[in-house]
Write a protein that binds this DNA or RNA. Structure first.
Lengths: 338, 338
DNA sequence: CATTGAAATGTTAGCGCTAACAAATGGATC
DNA sequence: GATCCATTTGTTAGCGCTAACATTTCAATG
């Protein structure tokens, strides 16, 4: 039952009584086909149930309608929301998404990039600004537009959309200090480059205020989780019992810190202030609700695709456009309000 | 700089001094090429940096190395963990994943299926057992193996791997009743077919124990979230103040219930027992840790791919194999232990 | 009414690979 | 050493589409 003969362009063409290329044009550049023919072709395509063969198209035109996306993790909520934005935006375009999971490894990223590039993608979305030299060169020379997402700096490969993790962390830390906390701590997991920039934001503001202390910093390369947040806080509070607030690398950790504080009967926000990063949905629902730095992940995915689609349409590679989506401090009850 | 001439099979062939088909064979069926030649070819491929052109391969062989995956949501943790399993398993195979997001719509599923099928995938992974008649027919006639994941029943389209949501819910509800709770409630969001089967498991066990009451059931079609869990519980407890435990459709809701209970100074597990479903990582870290039904999502993704790859290798379609991964009740402090 | 040129449609070739069949090679066997 | 057969390698054609160039059509113009 599976042997339905494929309906080809030629089938549609002979049905309409024109040549195959005309059908091809009606599909790709309809303005070059007369309106009445266009309509007739549309009808024939419908009746025959013709679906273009992407492989043949790709081979003939040496282009594809694939947008390659490289993200470090599929399970991290942050990236899955970006991904949702990407899928949403792609929905009404002819493009398809090809996802690659780099697992936070720039070697794996390089490999995936080579595979992706060999498929001649229409565009590429890559995460962050810390590509290896090789990857960067590959991307610079890519025959398609490239968007870097999640971060911004002054040296985009091509397009860029994101926000400053450093400034986000500065804002969070400044908030803690403004609220009267004087012995700020930092908890960080999966210290990838973005996390490290957040740490630097924390460190710089704390240092400027004369409140930085290394014993109040705990980090690990392990993957972030709520459980890990609880563990890190347990270690941190043993080591630095005078700690009066924690800025967490991300919301999972922050939630873990909250739970561990509750277990230890440490009052939040009275004895301990907690601030997360990303403002996942659950932060507002927690008890107490947790202060966090909101980032615009869905928008980032959506607009990354829009940037790409525009660039592809205009055939204008290497534009250097940088979009700063910013962030927002969401003050909630896990930090004191003076 | 982007105009590197593509390295083709022919280039490798002339370098080695054989014909193109031999290189092709060395790549796809190495056992049919003599060992020394194989080695020589491998070296040449390496030196020239040859990467096969998938489009050309697909066109010539009318097959692809793409495994299509249809899931209802990319942001739901449950599916993203399945996805991770899938990506992990696919890593050391020649296959690629093409992801489709059905957004819980069987119409969208049908559309995606048609698109996927027209690309002649090597295999398909679809979520659940509630495909539309059309989709089911398409899948039955598909020229490739198909795995249904997340659920099990006696009528697989081809392969199937999952567990019984109904039985999971029964186990959870029985646990609540065993622990002495007598006025069990149910909170459910996004009442998709799987959620409905969970509800039925709850209802049946509660009814059998003579403890079912409709006013203690609250459901919504809205997407599940922690915030929603808190809201649903708030409504539920107003409506049925005598409620003494809640079985939640999933862990997001359960966490929301816990937070809302804390806000209302309702003691967990003393005054209120809470049980979730899926056992996301955070359940064990919560304060108190939340009882849940553990499901094996990563394994499910991984083994779904393995089933598929085996079926593809054996060219044996429609096997009817059903794998029950089961589930496990994780008793924690959010439910009384007698 | 011949000329022009833009718009609409067609012809030819080939993208890079593999299916299907063909041929060569090299032992084992009588 | 002729015969057979399995193993290894090659030849030819074509998958379905589009690039590049060619041709036709037809309205506008002097």
């Amino acid at each position: 039952m599976s042997g339905f003969k494929r309906v080809t362009l030629a089938d549609v063409a002979s049905r309409v009584g024109v040549s195959a290329i005309t059908i091809s044009r009606a599909l790709r550049t309809p303005e070059k086909v007369s309106p009445q023919l266009r309509e007739e072709i549309a009808r024939a395509i419908d009746e025959l149930g013709y679906v273009p063969d992407r492989a043949a198209r790709a081979l003939a035109s040496s282009r594809t309608d694939v947008i390659g996306v490289l993200i470090p993790s599929v399970t991290n909520n942050v990236f899955s929301e970006v991904l949702l934005g990407i899928y949403t935006a792609v929905e009404n375009t002819p493009f398809d998404i090809q996802l690659g999971n780099t697992r936070y490894s720039s070697l794996k990223e390089e490999d995936l990039l080579k595979v992706f590039l060999s498929q001649k993608p229409a565009g590429l979305i890559v995460t962050g600004i810390d590509q290896s030299e090789t990857s960067r060169a590959l991307l610079k020379n890519a025959a398609c537009p490239v968007v870097q997402i999640m971060e911004i700096d002054e040296d985009p490969i091509d397009l860029m959309i994101g926000f400053s993790h450093y400034e986000g962390a500065r804002t969070a830390t400044a908030h803690l200090i403004e609220q009267g906390y004087r012995r700020p701590g930092f908890a960080g997991a999966r210290m990838d480059p973005r996390s490290q920039r957040r740490f630097r934001g924390f460190r710089d503001v704390a240092t400027e205020a004369g409140l930085y202390a290394e014993e109040r910093v705990i980090t690990t390369t392990a993957a972030s989780s709520v459980t890990l947040g609880a563990q890190l806080f347990a270690e941190l509070i043993e080591r630095a019992p005078d700690l009066d607030c924690v800025f967490c690398n991300n919301d999972d950790l922050a939630l873990g810190v909250l739970f561990e504080a509750q277990r230890r009967r440490i009052a939040v926000p009275g004895q301990l202030g907690i601030c997360g990063f990303n403002d996942l949905e659950m932060m507002a629902a927690a008890e107490p609700p947790i202060t966090s730095i909101r980032t615009f992940r869905h928008d980032m995915g959506r607009r990354a695709v829009e940037l790409l689609v525009d660039a592809i349409a205009q055939g204008r590679p290497r534009s250097g456009a940088v979009v700063d989506l910013g962030f927002e401090l969401r003050k909630r009850s896990s930090t004191r309000s003076r």
